[in-house]
Write a protein that binds this DNA or RNA. Structure first.
Lengths: 198, 198
DNA sequence: CTGTTTTGCTACACGCCTGTAGCAACACCT
DNA sequence: AGGTGTTGCTACAGGCGTGTAGCAAAACAG
C-alpha cells in the first residue's frame, strides 16, 4: 500500500479508536491491528506515537478551519442593506451545519474523548481566541448598525460564542434529538428580543 | 498517622498533582512521594489506584453539591413581591461566588485536567441534568410571572446554564482578569433587555 | 522491660506499551 | 530469470506502573 494512503488509513483508525474507547486506547498496536498490519508498519509512517497523535490533531485542525470558512463573512463585503441579525443567524447556521456534517472531526474538538492530549486542548483554545476576535468584529459592526442593550461587547461576543459551541455539543451528543433549525430559531427570536425598543 | 487523616492527605496530594500535571501523573507512587511515604502506604488506605480516583471524585462531588445549596431557592418560599430577574441574578452570583471561593474543587469539574477519567465526566453530566431541571423550574416560574420573548423554555434554560458555566470557566481560567460582578452585571442587563416591551 | 500491634519500607513479579533489529516474501525492472 | 527495492513480519530489549510479600522498627500495653 502506498505511504500516503496508509497514512490516512492509520489516522482514520486512530480517530475511530479515540472516539470509541478514548485516547488511552490509541496504542500503536491497536492502530496497526485496526488496519490489519503490525506495529513496525506504523513506525514506518510516524516516528512516534506522539507524532501520530500530532498528525491526528493537525488533520482535525485543518478540517475544522476549512469548514469554518463560510461562517464568517468578510466585513468589507457588507452593504447597508445587510440585516445584522440575519447575518449572525446565517453564521450560526453555517457553523452548526458544518458540525453536523462532520461530527467525527468536531467531536474531537468539542467533546474530547477520555485521555485527550493536552496539546489538543491547547490548540483548540488558541483557535477559539482567533474565532472570538472575528466574532467580536462582526458583532461590533452589527451593534453599531442596529443598536442594542448596553451590554459589554466583549462579554456579549463570548456569550454568543459559548452558546454556539453549546449548541454544537448538543448536536454532537444527541443528533437524533436536536436539529440545527431549533437553535437558529432560538437565536433569531433572542436577537429580535434584544432589538432596541424590543 | 491516623488512617482518616492520611486519607485526606493522600486525596489532597492527588488533587494537587492532577491540577498541576494532569491525571496521568497521578500514579500511586507520585501520590505517596508527595506525602513523604511509599506506595504500600497508599495501598493500605485505597485498594486500587481506581479507588483513589473514585474517592477523589466522590469528595469533589460532595463539595460541589454542598456549595450549590444556596444557589437554588425553594420554589415554595417565593412570594408575589419577589422579582424573578433578581432571583436569577442572585442565583448566578451565588454560583459564581462558590466557584471563585473553591477553585481547586471546581476546576476538576469545569476544566478537567488532562487525562481525567471518563467516570468524572459522566458524573458531572449526571449532576448537570439535575441542576438543569431545577433551573428550568425556576425559570418557568419567572417566565409565567413576568413574561418574556417567545423562547423555547428548554433551550432558554440550557442557554442560561451554559452561560453560567462559561462564566465560571473564565473565572477559573483567569481569576485576575474576571470578577463575579462583571458577569452578574451582564446578566442583569441582558434580563432587563429581555423584558416584554424591553 | 517484653510481647504485640501498628506503621512503613525494601524488594519482587507481572503486565503493558514503546521503539528497534533483523529476516522473509513479494513485486518490479532489466 | 535475476537482481533490487519495497513492504511487512517476528522477536527482542527496555521502561514504567501496578499490586503484593515479607521484613524492620517504632509505639504501646501489660
Amino acid at each position: 500500500m502506498p505511504a500516503a494512503q496508509r497514512r490516512e488509513q492509520l489516522l482514520d483508525a486512530a480517530l475511530d479508536i479515540a472516539l470509541e474507547r478514548g485516547f488511552h486506547a490509541v496504542t500503536v498496536d491497536a492502530v496497526a491491528r485496526a488496519c490489519g498490519v503490525t506495529r513496525p508498519v506504523v513506525y514506518g509512517v510516524f516516528t512516534d506515537r506522539t507524532a501520530l497523535l500530532t498528525a491526528l490533531a493537525d488533520r482535525a485542525e485543518a478540517r475544522t478551519q476549512e469548514q469554518l470558512a463560510p461562517v464568517f463573512p468578510d466585513l468589507r463585503d457588507l452593504t447597508d442593506d445587510t440585516d445584522p441579525d440575519e447575518l449572525l443567524v446565517a453564521g450560526v447556521t453555517a457553523y452548526l451545519s458544518a458540525v453536523a456534517a462532520d461530527p467525527r472531526t468536531w467531536r474531537v474538538v468539542l467533546l474530547p474523548p477520555e485521555g485527550a492530549p493536552a496539546e489538543l486542548a491547547a490548540r483548540a483554545d488558541e483557535h477559539r481566541r482567533v474565532l472570538l476576535r472575528r466574532l467580536r468584529a462582526l458583532l461590533d459592526w452589527g451593534l453599531t448598525r442596529r443598536g442594542g442593550p448596553p451590554l459589554d461587547p466583549d462579554l456579549f461576543a463570548r456569550a454568543v460564542f459559548t452558546l454556539a459551541e453549546g449548541a454544537a455539543r448538543l448536536l454532537l451528543a444527541d443528533p437524533d434529538r436536536w436539529q440545527v433549525e431549533a437553535f437558529t430559531g432560538f437565536a433569531r427570536t433572542a436577537l429580535a428580543a434584544l432589538r432596541p425598543q424590543g
